[in-house]
């Protein structure tokens, strides 16, 4: 257990309980919450845990503010999309697509890192913003390759399709379809990637990243070449985001600008990191779970509140499901106000 979690325990009973509940819920999601919509939410949480954890590696641990994270996420998605669309729904092309996507991401990350990590943080953030915008424009312009604004649907390998049946008989009343296998692929890869990230931040290398976040000048004076460490962190984070994109592309069987490159996703990632707690990794789990649940179920909840308060003036209108973004905003402001170090930071105190 110590080596699995890399010695980085939740260090709070409540936090451990919440994390275990999330792990348990995700591990048995197809059986606990049957139906397409809950499974979709669970898969999204898994993907976002990886994506947010990879962003935390940059923002929370190394202190690098980047807005290009969805670009790497998108590269993973488009890698799978292009490979499966062009060469058919086989594992071979998919592997090729993933490797190509990883290569493109790492090279891009390295270029951004080496060229611009020497400049001040604010300029680096600007540069990443520019590169990410350029990439989004490129992806929508190259429609022969990417499907443009409409994106592309494609078929995945047969065992991952909803039509596939692994077992003749349902298990615990749930038919084991390719969709469920697909979910478990997403879940297990996400779990492995998360544990890997936990190892990285708790390695000697990870400690140097924290030192750089704290005082890059002194880290350099201690003999650590800061630009090298920052570049490696950028590449690792980009690679991990790419794999998150791959998982999402496999799960959705569709890749388009709205599901991968949009700036709205970038903002979601930022919110999840901040709500969960920067520089903790466990914050990524909490942030992703909470935010995704709110995104999907706040409207349902509000509809119920709105009905329950029917007849009382003003309240039904205030809780009308169309106002859900307002309440999400309120929740965000409250959480930042009361938990400036994030939920994990608060629980650990």
């Amino acid at each position: 257990m110590n080596s699995l979690l890399s010695g980085d325990f939740p260090r709070s009973r409540l936090l451990a309980a919440i994390l275990l509940a999330i792990l348990f819920g995700l591990a048995f999601a197809p059986f606990l919450f049957p139906g397409a919509q809950p499974l979709n939410v669970a898969a999204k949480i898994c993907v976002f845990v990886v994506l947010v954890a990879s962003y935390d590696l940059l923002l929370g641990y190394t202190g690098i503010v980047s807005f290009a994270h969805t670009m790497f996420y998108g590269i993973g998605g488009y890698g799978v999309s292009i490979a499966l669309y062009s060469f058919g729904p086989e594992w071979g092309p998919m592997a090729l697509g993933i490797i190509a996507a990883l290569a493109v991401s790492v090279v891009l990350a390295l270029m951004i890192g080496l060229l611009s990590l020497r400049v001040r943080a604010i300029f680096f953030a600007m540069i990443t913003l520019a590169v990410a915008s350029a990439f989004a424009v490129l992806a929508s312009q190259l429609s022969w390759l990417t499907g443009g604004e409409d994106g592309r649907s494609y078929r995945v390998p047969e065992v991952l399709r909803p039509g596939f049946r692994l077992l003749e008989e349902p298990l615990f009343g749930v038919a084991i379809t390719g969709k469920i296998l697909s979910y478990y692929l997403v879940f297990s890869v996400a779990l492995v990637l998360f544990l890997l990230a936990l190892r990285i931040v708790n390695s000697p290398f990870g400690r140097v990243l924290q030192a750089i976040r704290e005082n890059d000048f002194r880290a350099e004076a201690l003999g650590y070449r800061v630009v090298v460490y920052r570049s490696i962190a950028t590449c690792l984070s980009a690679g991990m985001a790419t794999l998150a994109g791959v998982l999402m592309a496999l799960w959705l069987r569709y890749t388009g600008p709205d599901t991968t490159l949009s700036f709205a996703i970038m903002i979601d990632i930022l919110l999840m990191v901040v709500i969960g707690g920067m520089g903790t990794l466990y914050g990524a789990v909490i942030g992703a779970a909470l935010f995704t649940l709110a995104q999907n179920y706040l409207q349902v909840l509000m509809a119920q509140v709105s009905e329950a308060t029917a007849g009382i003036p003003l309240l039904p209108q205030l809780f009308h499901p169309d106002r859900w973004l307002l309440w999400l905003g309120v929740l965000f402001v409250l959480s930042v106000y009361f938990f400036p170090t994030g939920i994990v930071g608060r629980l650990r105190r």
Partner: peptide, 19 residues
């Protein structure tokens, strides 16, 4: 420990735990 680690040249170890 960070200074000792720099001296030992172990900063680029990502595989093991710091402990």
């Amino acid at each position: 420990r960070l200074a000792v680690q720099s001296r030992a040249g172990a900063g680029l170890d990502l595989r093991h735990m710091w402990s």
